[in-house]
Design a protein around this nucleic acid. Structure first.
Length: 568
RNA sequence: CGGGGCGUAGCGCAGUCUGGUAGCGUAUCUGCUUUGGGAGCAGAGGGUCGGAGGUUCGAAUCCUCUCGCCCCGACCA
């Protein structure tokens, strides 16, 4: 591609609404432009990167035996009513009516549609297993889209769905896709990690997320120091402590804490550490309010609280409810003397002489000893895993917390959708059974963004070869020099003729401008041509990852380039 | 949805408090010079100051409403 002809608006400065590095660089490098919050145009340079991700995903999915299909983006409400998700999915599901007033939604995911397709066409065990995938736009009306392509409302996703006759077969496919995903992200040149995850709104029995390691990632994961265990903190179980005998020390006493509501404020006011306080949170559930308590330096994991308490709906209580339950304004709740069910994290049991709210305005309690003072409390693993917690899978392993970007998620669905939609088959013995399902997603645009998040420097993007929109960037220093241009044109033909994607900066710009743009755009190999290099019958070649340049004889350039691209 | 912030030229910003001719940098266009790390000089174009209403002789500036965008939280593949 000739740069002079390319629709490539690069920017010297980042637009002020971009926060993370990948978003800034994608804007500056002319890859994307915003249309509305969480909705983007992909410009030629951006689309090329996205297509590269798609190409890799397609190749790997195909070779794993999955088959590509294309499903609609606008979906009728009936299927969603049938699965129960028309009501369950909530506001994230963007609904619309056609001219007849019929209800539709923009597809946020396609379990319903694919299951509908398969139930109509597959009757026999002989037709299974089956794995179908598509690469398509999804729309989820996220509460807060952010960070460019990282969390858009409309985004490109590869979604795959598999159908099986048995659990074993489904699990085998789950493992195969797990491996397929690993090779996909490896080929994309990403540093990633598969972690155990929550199933969320998709449902199912277990799942793994593929996380690209990055400090700007929105997800927090824990990794065991000793064994292979790694999990999203939303999901991570914590091994319970020894649970030795706890001897209460002091008596409790009220202490005045005027206006001190948060753990930090109370801690600072009483000059004690957060771990000496008990954090008490009131939740509303379908069975009325419940109370959760964790140590002051921990957070409640709502997924765990749901499981421990057996409720299915859980939301932070509003101020009214808090007042009703505790008799005090928000900020002074404590587990003592409440009439609702109390769930405590296991760590709370070991606390002595702790501080909690007194259920009275501007007052806290000291000398609280849960073992003695909390009657009827149920203890369990309730907190969000954090650094230093004990691994549930091995002896002595401790968690370390990292951040990641979720680029893929695979789910063992079981029969959730096949039962709801009646996707059944006839088994060898003539019995009708629901199909066992799995589903598997990859955020295509997010992979591209994550790659930039991981591969950049002060000057711009540093593309890994497989995702690079072009692999070679030719810079003729002076386009007015005939000899330079003749050599550049010949090089351009040579490279493109050999299937090497090449960006040719044939613009009449000063060298400095071209070098700055070359660094910003981040193609893996840059070749500079000038009267100086041609005097020695050579080109100057530089890798984006390196600050060294090398001079290569004109006749050797193709070999050199092929060599560099193959090696990186 | 709660809290905070921002909407002025393509991009980055000043001007708003204290009402009085809409500015700076950069980008764009033209000309000359320059030509290996975002050149110099000269000239030019580009704005319903997010929108609506109000106050006022006069509103980017004050008031009311509204729309959009960003950040934190809650929530969420």
């Amino acid at each position: 591609m000739r740069l002079s002809k390319m629709f490539l608006p690069t920017l010297k400065e980042s637009p002020s609404d971009a926060e993370v590095i990948s978003h800034k660089l994608m804007l500056r490098a002319g890859m994307v432009r915003k249309v509305a919050a969480g909705i983007y145009n992909l410009l030629p340079m951006g689309l090329k990167a996205v297509r590269n991700v798609e190409r890799i995903v397609r190749a790997e999915m195909d070779s794993s035996g999955a088959q590509e299909v294309a499903m609609p983006f606008v979906l009728p409400s009936e299927l969603w009513v049938e699965s129960g998700r028309w009501d369950e999915y909530g506001k994230e599901l963007c609904r619309l009516n056609d001219r007849h007033g019929r209800e539709f939604c923009l597809g946020p995911t396609h379990e319903e549609v694919i299951t509908d397709m398969v139930r109509h066409e597959v009757r026999s065990y002989r037709d299974l297993p089956l794995n179908l995938y598509q690469i398509q736009s999804k729309f989820r009306d996220e509460i807060r889209p952010r960070f460019g392509l990282m969390r858009g409302r409309e985004f490109i996703m590869k979604d795959a769905y598999s159908f099986h006759t048995t659990e074993e077969c489904a699990e085998k496919e789950y493992k195969r896709i797990f491996d397929t995903y690993s090779s996909i992200f490896q080929r994309c040149g990403l540093e990633f990690r598969a972690v155990e995850a929550d199933t969320g709104a998709i449902g199912g029995s277990f799942s793994h997320e593929f996380m690209v390691m990055a400090d700007t990632g929105e997800d927090e994961i824990v990794i065991c120091s000793k064994c292979e265990y790694a999990a999203n903190t939303e999901r991570a179980d914590i091994r319970s402590g020894k649970g030795g005998e706890v001897v209460p020390v002091g008596e409790f006493a009220e202490v005045s804490t005027p206006g001190k509501k948060t753990i930090e404020e109370v801690g600072a006011f009483l000059k004690i550490k957060a771990k000496r306080l008990i954090k008490t949170i009131i939740y509303n559930t379908e069975n009325g309010p419940i109370v959760a308590a964790v140590r002051g330096d921990n957070d409640v994991n709502e997924g765990k609280l749901k499981r421990l308490s057996g409720v299915s709906e859980l939301a932070l209580a509003d101020d009214e409810t808090v007042k009703e339950v505790t008799g005090a304004p928000v900020g002074f709740a404590g587990p003592l003397g409440l009439k609702v069910k109390l769930y405590c994290d296991q760590k709370v049991r070991a606390m002595t002489d702790a501080v909690t709210g007194a259920n009275k305005a501007d007052t806290h309690m000291t000398g609280v000893n849960p073992v003695r003072d909390f009657s009827g409390a149920e203890y369990g693993d309730l907190r969000v895993a954090s650094s230093g917690d004990s691994c549930p899978r091995c002896d002595g392993g401790k968690f370390k917390v990292s951040r990641g970007i979720e680029v893929g998620h695979i789910f063992m669905l079981g029969t959730k959708y096949s039962e709801a939609l009646g996707a059944t088959f006839l088994d060898e013995d003539g019995k009708e059974k629901p199909m066992i399902m799995g589903c598997y997603g990859i955020g295509i645009g997010r992979v591209a963004a994550a790659s930039i998040e991981q591969n950049n420097d002060d000057n711009g993007i540093v593309w890994p070869v497989p995702l690079a929109p072009f692999t070679v960037h030719i810079v003729p220093v002076n386009v007015k020099d005939e000899e330079t241009m003749k050599a550049s044109e010949e090089l351009y033909s040579l490279l493109t003729g050999n299937g090497i994607t090449t960006l040719f900066d044939d613009r009449d710009e000063r060298a400095g401008v071209k070098f700055k743009d070359a660094d910003l755009l981040g193609m893996p190999v840059r070749i500079t041509i000038s009267t100086k290099t041609l005097q020695n019958d050579s080109f100057e070649i530089k890798e984006r990852t390196s600050s060294e340049v090398e001079f290569v004889p004109v006749k050797d350039i193709l070999n050199k380039v092929t060599d560099l691209l193959a090696r990186s």
